[in-house]
C-alpha cells in the first residue's frame, strides 16, 4: 500500500498538526477564561464601594438620630451654609495659577490660541470637581451652584465679577487627587502646555476659600411640595 512509503513524513506532519491543534485549543481556553475573571474583579470593586458608601450613610443616620432637635437643625444649617458657599472654608487643597502664553504667536496660528479662555478655566474646574474638590474659587470669587464662568471680552466673568489673567483657582480637596487630575497625561495641563499657557499647580496643607459675597435672591422660583413632576 502506498501509505507505508510515507510513514515517517506522515508522522512528522501529524506531529506538527497535533502541536498546532493543542496550541490553538489552549489559546481559545485562555481567551474564554480571562473575560469572566475581569468581570468578577469589576463587580468585587463595585461591591466594596457600595459597602463603604453604605457604612458612611449608616454612620450619618446614627449621628443624626443621636442629636437633639436643636443640634440636628444646627448641623443641617452648617451643611447648607457650606454647600451654598455662605461661609469661608479652609482645608488641604491646591492653588492653580493660569496665565496667558509667554510664547510669541506664530504667523500661521490664531493668536487666540495663546490666551486663556473661559473654556480653559471651565475645563480645569470641571476636572477638579470630578477629582472630588469640595469648594472652589476663581480670583476670589467663590463658585456656587449658580456661578457662571463666562467670556467677557478680554476678561472672564465669574459671579458677574470680571477679572483678567492671571487666574488663580483655589480648591479644597484631596491634594494628590487634585494634582493628578490636572497633570494626567493628555489632560488639561498637557493640552494647554502646547500653546505655552502657564499653568502652575501648588499643593498646600491649608487653602482658604472666601465666602460667596453677593446675595442670592429667588425672584421667580418658588419651592414646590410635589416630589415628582405631574402632567
Amino acid at each position: 500500500m502506498q501509505l507505508e512509503k510515507g510513514r515517517l513524513s506522515i508522522a512528522c506532519v501529524c506531529m506538527v498538526l497535533g502541536f498546532m491543534l493543542v496550541i490553538q485549543f489552549k489559546s481559545t481556553e485562555d481567551i474564554r477564561a480571562s473575560q469572566p475573571s475581569q468581570r468578577v474583579e469589576e463587580l468585587a470593586a463595585r461591591l466594596h464601594q457600595a459597602e463603604a458608601e453604605n457604612k458612611e450613610l449608616e454612620a450619618e443616620i446614627r449621628d443624626l438620630r443621636g442629636m437633639s432637635g436643636d443640634a440636628k437643625s444646627e448641623k443641617i444649617t452648617d451643611d447648607i451654609m457650606m454647600i451654598s458657599g455662605m461661609t469661608p472654608l479652609e482645608g488641604p487643597g491646591v492653588i492653580i495659577t493660569i496665565d496667558d502664553s509667554a510664547k510669541k504667536a506664530k504667523m500661521e496660528n490664531d493668536p487666540n490660541l495663546y490666551l486663556v479662555h473661559d473654556e480653559d478655566i471651565l475645563k480645569v474646574v470641571n476636572e477638579l470637581r470630578a477629582a472630588g474638590a469640595e469648594a472652589l474659587s476663581i480670583n476670589g470669587q467663590r463658585l456656587t451652584a449658580n456661578s457662571e464662568i463666562r467670556c467677557a471680552g478680554p476678561t472672564i466673568s465669574v459671579n458677574n465679577v470680571r477679572s483678567a489673567p492671571p487666574f488663580e483657582i483655589r480648591a479644597i480637596g484631596d491634594k494628590d487627587n487634585l494634582v493628578n487630575s490636572i497633570n494626567m497625561r493628555g489632560g488639561v495641563a498637557d493640552s494647554l502646555k502646547v500653546w505655552g499657557i502657564n499653568l502652575t499647580i501648588q499643593p498646600l496643607d491649608n487653602v482658604w476659600i472666601p465666602a460667596y459675597k453677593a446675595t442670592t435672591k429667588y425672584k421667580l422660583a418658588t419651592t414646590s411640595s410635589k416630589e415628582e413632576e405631574t402632567k
Binding site: G18, V22, D30
Partner: peptide
C-alpha cells in the same frame, strides 16, 4: 505512525508554556 505523531505533537503543545497572542 499518524496517531503516534498526533499524540507526541499534542503532548509537546501542552508542555510548551506559551499560547498564541490574540
Amino acid at each position: 505512525y499518524a496517531v503516534v505523531g498526533l499524540l507526541i505533537g499534542g503532548a509537546l503543545g501542552f508542555l510548551v508554556p506559551f499560547g498564541i497572542p490574540a
